[in-house]
Amino acid sequence: MKSIQYKRLFASLIIASFIVGCSDDDSVSYEQPLDFSGTYTQQDQMGRPAINTVFVSSANKDAFNTTTPSSMNASFQSAFENQLLALNPNYTTNLLGLDAPSFTGVLATDVLGVSTTGTTTFYDGNNVLTGRALADDVIDVELILIFGGPTNADNVGLTSDHVDANDKAFLSSFPYLASPW
């Protein structure tokens, strides 16, 4: 018992000294030993914006949040397709030319594709799903893809919420997000 306690203390001290030694922000020279032990279990997950909110039924929202992305398509694609057709019973294809099974097949795997070689944007007219920048109007993109039909001519009252920008300007430098209210 005692030796186990000593081992734990020793391990904590090693971790603590490592962290203090590596940080340039060590204003506190003699920190309490930091305990990073234990197993952490998944609570929430997010790749693209609004996917769980829009496409997953209330009963399945917690389950979706704790499903690994590689299993999402098998578990949720058909439910996503039903939900898409509930939102827009006249859905045929969208601006990306995707029919309902294809579009929901993309959406059900909730990961965000990010380019490491060029423009990073949710959609800018040329690039599709190469990232998500702070100023991207992701809601309009999703409304257009759900309601706009093959040429974005359908359901014109539903393809933009007419909120096109954030309420505070973003910063051009790190940390990029605006200061709090």
Partner: peptide, 8 residues
């Protein structure tokens, strides 16, 4: 290209 997501 990377696939990315966040978890809590």
């Amino acid at each position: 290209t990377l696939n990315t997501w966040v978890e809590t």
